[in-house]
Amino acid sequence: MARLGRVLRRRGQAARALTLGLRFAGGSQWEKTRRLVEPSAHDEDLRAVAYQLMDAAGLQRGRLTGITLRGEDLVDVGQVPQRISLDDAREARLVAEAALDRVRDKYGPDVIGPAAGRCHVG
């Protein structure tokens, strides 16, 4: 999801919908599209819709052999109205997202990843 958001942001695009595709052992496939509340390229927004799609898939015991997540109905970010938010935590996450994009652009996409374990401050 983070990679999809980063690609969209680098292209100056936002997705109006996401499509999740699942492929199972034996060749069966499942695909579903869900629209976003508003066009977005932010990881947080894309993640929320992707999780909704995963819940809709109702995965039980099937052997999953492939997964795809696609941004659909793309628009230029210049066409997305800017909103004023009073959610300081969300605004801080969006600032951090932009900073991480700049670091990854400079040093490579794998320079920052999930924490390996607990962080001890001594």
Rank of each mutant, 00 (worst) to 15 (best):
L46I: 13
V121K: 12
K106V: 04
L4Q: 01
R47S: 12
L94D: 00
G117D: 05
P81N: 11
R11S: 10
R47C: 06
V103W: 02
A57R: 12
R118P: 10
A99W: 02
D55P: 00
E97V: 05
G113Q: 06
H42V: 10
V80A: 03
R23G: 10
A2W: 05
M54Y: 04
D55H: 06
G117P: 07
V49F: 00
A92T: 09
L20F: 03
L8G: 03
S85W: 03
R6H: 10
K32E: 06
A41Y: 11
L20S: 03
G12Y: 11
L100G: 00
G27S: 04
K32I: 02
Q52S: 12
I67M: 15
G113P: 00
L4W: 00
V77R: 14
R93W: 13
G117M: 11
A57P: 08
L22E: 03
S40V: 12
A96V: 05
A96M: 13
K106P: 01
Q13I: 02
W30I: 07
Q29N: 13
A115K: 05
L69I: 07
V75S: 06
R104M: 15
L100V: 13
A57W: 12
R35G: 04
D43K: 04
L22T: 10
A115N: 00
L18S: 03
M1F: 05
T19E: 09
